[in-house]
């Protein structure tokens, strides 16, 4: 792979890749499933060493004085997927958007508490630097109105003042698409408009676009809510494949999805973190009444 003229992306995934048992197992699980989703068992999930990437300490977010998130402390680790569940308006999306400080785009938003990335307060980081390290994928797929190639290359091109050529970028683009399980489907059409892809492909393209800038943490804000079951399964496979490489936080309305993809689950209600634990703890032996009511479908 050629050298980039710009600060080269940190390439720390290649060693991971060799020792990655997740990929074959998750794909076979997907093919075995044949579109039918077995809820409880999910896909085989190899144990990966988990390393803390992010941590929030007593994080509170308020919009114009009205509190949306109250004192939430959570750890986000590489090697395990954290799912945020809870009814609409419980602050889980606000919490997610605060992790890359996207919430501070809103002029009325105020923040209390601390957000740490790799042991360092995010306020000490350059905003753009933080957002490159903490990628985000939105509820609605939002590919840019450009070609597939340019969508993926966008983040790499924008990080330096000198723009690398297409030839230099190509391996990076293909690798990002490959990591997002999309390369096979689009490798012959890289110059096609990204908006012509199907919804599920668009969402995987958005994930690939985030992966192209080599994030340490990936935030997924209800990534499947606009997708059909097949595309949802593809995204879930992808999440399970990526969990050994980067820390993933996923917000979801869908409790089956949380059980399928998550290692830890945090239940939020009216801005409070009610309960947090492993999937079994939260779904099978919830400690709090509100959690029990929610996961058993009494409200939500």
């Amino acid at each position: 792979m050629e050298k980039l003229n710009t600060p080269p992306p940190v390439r720390r995934i290649s060693p991971d890749k060799k020792s990655k048992p997740a990929k074959p197992s998750s794909t076979t699980a997907a093919s075995k499933r044949n579109g039918k989703v077995s809820v409880k068992t999910g896909r085989s999930r190899p144990k990966v060493e988990s390393i803390e990437r992010m941590r929030t300490v007593d994080l509170g977010i308020a919009y114009g004085g009205k509190s949306a998130v109250n004192g939430v402390s959570l750890q986000i680790k590489k090697g395990e997927v954290l799912a945020l569940i809870g009814p609409s308006g419980c602050g889980k999306t606000t919490y997610l958007r605060s992790l890359n400080l996207l919430v501070e785009q809103t002029p009325t938003a105020t923040r209390t508490g601390k957000i740490m990335l790799d042991g360092e307060d995010v306020d000490k980081l350059e905003l753009t630097e933080l957002r490159r390290k903490v990628g985000m994928v939105f509820q609605q797929p939002n590919p840019f109105p450009m070609s597939i190639f340019d969508n993926i290359a966008y983040g790499i091109r924008e990080r330096g003042s000198r723009k690398p050529t297409r030839r230099v970028l190509k391996p990076f683009v293909e690798e990002a698409l490959d990591r997002a399980n999309l390369l096979e489907e689009v490798k012959d059409n890289l110059s096609h408009p990204a908006l012509r892809l199907s919804g599920g492909q668009q969402q995987r393209l958005c994930i690939a676009r985030s992966l192209a800038v080599e994030p340490e943490v990936l935030l997924l804000d209800e990534p499947c809510s606009a997708l059909d079951p097949r595309s949802t399964a593809a995204i879930e496979d992808l999440v399970l494949k990526l969990r050994s490489e980067i820390a993933i936080v996923i917000v979801t309305h869908n409790m089956q999805q949380a059980q399928r993809v998550a290692d830890r689950v945090a239940f939020m209600y009216l801005g409070d973190l009610v309960e947090e634990g492993t999937v079994t703890q939260v779904f099978d032996k919830p400690q709090q009444k509100r959690t029990r009511d929610y996961v058993s479908g009494d409200f939500g």
């Binding site: 996207l102 957002r131 990628g135 985000m136 939105f138 590919p143 966008y154 676009r209 985030s210």
Partner: peptide, 20 residues
């Protein structure tokens, strides 16, 4: 959502405005 997507990739508002 397009400019949000660009901003989430670590691009500042000014660049997001121009490039997207």
């Amino acid at each position: 959502s397009w400019s949000q997507g660009a901003i989430a990739l670590g691009v500042n508002r000014w660049r997001a405005m121009w490039t997207v």
